[in-house]
Amino acid sequence: MSKPLKHPSFFYNLKLILLITFISILIISYSSYSVNLFLNSQNIVRGGLAEYVYDSGDERVRSTQLLFSGDAVTGVTVTCSKPIGATGYYIVSVRFSNGLESVSKSITVYQGRGSSFTVTIYFDRPINYYPSPKLEAEVYRV
């Protein structure tokens, strides 16, 4: 005696119910995960780490100040030290990177006697300070 067969629609419905249930679990898990992420990131810190790299040599960069327009960096003021009697042309270069893109610019200036000088360099286009700011600055005598 063979067993009586179940109606196929029974299995079809069961599969559908299981599928819907699992999709529901997925959606609810995702929502729960999102809310948890939100709760965990209640202290959102942007720009917490910055790096400044200065060059070496007889002429050295001693100070840099970023010029801001909101969150965008528009330029850098650079103060350099040099031997007092070394007059001539100096090239000051800066490169700013935010981790996603970078801009660089250099200018040439003439300097007479003196142990330090300050120049301001404006970038051709503003660049966002965030997320990973890094400034490299160098100066050398031509």
Partner: peptide, 10 residues
């Protein structure tokens, strides 16, 4: 928190 390091002076 939006933090900016605007100047480094040696």
């Amino acid at each position: 928190y939006n933090i900016k390091i605007s100047r480094i002076n040696d």
